[in-house]
């Protein structure tokens, strides 16, 4: 069954996080927030204003932030840490590995400005390896929602899940098209469009691009199925295999490196259980650079046209 969708407005996924955190915190008094000098960028201002005693400004000290968050869970709190994706993962990998993941702590690592759509700040800040870093950690849940509504719903949902979570979202304003006030189910793929010729599995900002690609392909007589994989780990293997059994080929689409991303997870699954042609729309072993988000998506092959081309290429490989 597919989920009906329609563009309601344009909004940033990080706004979904800020609003989701505020709403979740109203319901659950154990939720606390920590931020490393990026309160406005992470849209944590509303939470801070409403719950000043539950907000901790740690300054530009991400390692300390992760450790404090781990300690807060020992006292029964549900900490949400906020900084850019780069500083949420690569910079603090060992802290997350030992103090959070290995220790099984209920920390929600909330990471904004992921991928090239961070834009003009350039490659120092545009992490494209974070999904891979996080999914390699045993028992880490990895979520990359696609729009404002889904990010808000995911932010609320992870409070009720006991265990470490990496929640990845972004900076730019993008179409907000998934239903408002949806129930977010961790690890459950979202079927957006039925199709029979190819399965497109997309995550994050590239879900809307996949929907655009589907429309263009339909005009050319190609029926593409579009499935939103918002949870990269645990992967909804059942949904992926069921779709590929029907279509026989796959395109993955994500704003991340090929290595370690969603496509990499799908490739493992298919190689083990259902070998099928696969094309990956992702950054291929490269750093990003300065530019507008739109320019960068084009230059790094992450646009609608790239998904269309990948679909044609993968269909041609079907036996």
């Amino acid at each position: 069954m597919t989920t009906a969708f329609t563009i309601q407005n344009n909004n940033a996924t990080r706004d979904g996080f800020g609003d989701g955190l505020y709403e979740a915190a109203q319901k659950n008094p154990e939720i606390v927030g920590l931020c490393a000098d990026l309160t406005d960028s992470l849209k944590m201002g509303k939470f801070h204003k409403e719950f000043p005693t539950r907000f901790f400004q740690v300054g530009i000290a991400e390692a300390n932030m992760i450790g404090i968050a781990a300690g807060l869970t020992i006292g029964g709190k549900i900490p949400y840490t906020g900084t850019f994706a780069n500083f949420s993962t690569g910079r603090v990998y060992d802290q997350i590995r030992q103090s959070v993941a290995y220790s099984g702590k209920n920390v929600k690592i909330c990471a904004s400005h992921a991928g090239v759509t961070l834009g003009e700040d350039g490659a120092t800040h545009q992490i494209l390896e974070d999904i891979g870093l996080m999914k390699m950690l045993p028992h880490m849940t990895v979520i990359n929602p696609c729009d404002y509504n889904q990010t808000k719903a995911a932010t609320i949902a992870i409070a009720d899940y006991e265990g470490p979570v990496y929640l990845r979202f972004g900076r730019p304003s993008v179409p907000n098209f998934t239903p408002e006030n949806q129930k977010f189910e961790i690890g459950k793929a979202l079927h957006l469009i039925e199709g029979k010729d190819v399965s497109i599995f997309a995550t994050g900002h590239l879900v809307w691009k996949a929907i655009e690609a589907q429309a263009q392909l339909a005009e050319q007589g190609i029926s593409a199925e579009v499935i939103n994989i918002h949870t990269i780990k645990p992967l909804d293997e059942e949904a992926i295999l069921a779709s590929v059994r029907k279509t026989g080929c796959v395109v993955s689409a994500e704003e991340h490196q090929r290595n370690g991303g969603l496509g990499d997870s799908i490739a493992q699954l298919l190689a083990l259980k259902l070998p099928s042609p696969l094309e990956m729309v992702a950054v291929n072993d490269s750093f990003g650079e300065s530019g507008t988000p739109a320019q960068l998506l084009t230059k790094y092959g992450l646009d609608t046209v790239n998904i269309v081309d990948a679909v044609k290429a993968v269909i041609a490989r079907k036996k």
Binding site: N64, G67, I68, A69, G71, T73, I74, G75, Q98, S99
Partner: peptide
Amino acid sequence: RVATGSLGQGMSVAIGVALAKKLNND
């Protein structure tokens, strides 16, 4: 209560426990 061994992480964790105690009026 937490894994340690990779050095330098315990003080942050201890601060977190202390903050939680304050929030809990413990």
